[in-house]
Amino acid sequence: MCLKTLGFVLVLFPGLLQAQGCDPPRLVHGNFLPRQETYSDRTTITYSCDNGYKPVVEGWWATSTCERGKWSHEPQCIDESSCLPPTIPNGKYPENSNGWYEAGSILTITCNGGFEHQNQITTTTCGNGKWSSAPVCERSMSACSAPPKIPHAVIIHGYQEVFAAGSEVQYECEDGYTAEGAHNKKSVCTQGSWTAVPTCTNFCAVNTDDNPEYISVGTVYIENGEEKRVECVKPHSWSLEQYSKVRCINGRVEATKCRNKVEHAAASVFDSD
């Protein structure tokens, strides 16, 4: 049984290694070196094209590398009148699956959020291997820069340098801090500026539901250094203190206890001694 299992592993292992290599590219109207039956992983070939053709990447020659069974780009030689994908800063367009565009192709450019077309030009045309004057996407006057940084907070949004008008971002305070009694707050890009942003401050959270001395009102948030009154439960025996003073000191709660007549009398006797 052991010998059969070992033989099975030995047969599979070379196949796994071979699967990581690449077959020779099918390059039409061009030549490449070195020529081999198979190429191991990380092997690089160089290729050039016949007259009237050019590589599918910039330059009159190109390289491609075998990476886990595939070439880093499929070596191709295309007609010199065709165009490579244009570079449109802050703009996008439909991508062609073969990585290039035939002569006469027309692309419609869409500007990214926060940018708009300059001079209302929105298309570019491929001719003689070059694109006509490409549209320019310039920053909109109503767009906003990156939202302001707030100490002890993060923004629940991917980073970007420019935001379109109407964009919203949400701030969330780190643990132990709060924004006006809440954990997050939104800011909106309006006419080039962000609406008011929160300030995250250190706070204490007093849960009255878990404290039998207090009338239940849920969680009370108290900023660092602030003092609040929390109403005490008032059955017949509770008559001296109607409120407890609760103070927040660096995230720690200090409070005066609710007291009844018996506790107060005992404390008075003790103090008089």
Rank of each mutant, 00 (worst) to 15 (best):
D23I: 00
G59A: 09
T44Y: 01
G91Y: 07
Y39P: 09
C22R: 02
G21E: 04
Y53H: 13
R42Y: 10
A62M: 06
P75A: 07
G114R: 11
C111E: 04
T122N: 01
S81L: 11
R26N: 13
T38Q: 07
I106Y: 01
R68N: 14
T46F: 05
N90C: 02
G99E: 00
T43S: 09
S81M: 08
D23N: 11
N98W: 10
I78H: 03
N119R: 15
I88D: 01
H29D: 07
T65S: 11
E80V: 15
V28I: 15
Q76D: 05
D50E: 15
Y53F: 15
Q120N: 15
C77F: 09
G52T: 12
Q36M: 14
L33Q: 11
N31D: 12
E74I: 13
L84Q: 08
N90P: 02
T110Y: 04
V56M: 03
S81V: 12
I78E: 03
I109D: 03
D50G: 00
P86H: 04
S72W: 08
R68L: 12
C66D: 04
L33V: 14
P55F: 06
Y93G: 01
L27T: 06
R42W: 05
R35G: 01
S97L: 14
N119Y: 14
S97M: 13
Q120L: 12
E116Q: 13
G59P: 06
G69I: 10
E58C: 01
N51G: 07
C83I: 11
I121D: 05
W100Y: 15
H73S: 07
L33F: 08
S81I: 10
P85G: 03
D50K: 10
Q36K: 13
W60Y: 11
S82Y: 09
Y93I: 07
E37M: 09
H73C: 00
C22G: 06
S81P: 01
P86Q: 02
C22P: 04
Q36W: 08
G104R: 11
L84D: 08
T44L: 03
E80D: 09
S64C: 04
R35F: 03
P55K: 05
S97V: 15
E74Y: 07
S97R: 15
T110A: 06
F32L: 07
Q20W: 11
G59C: 08
G21M: 06
W100C: 00
G52A: 12
E67D: 02
Y47R: 01
G59I: 12
Q120D: 12
R26P: 06
I121V: 15
T43G: 00
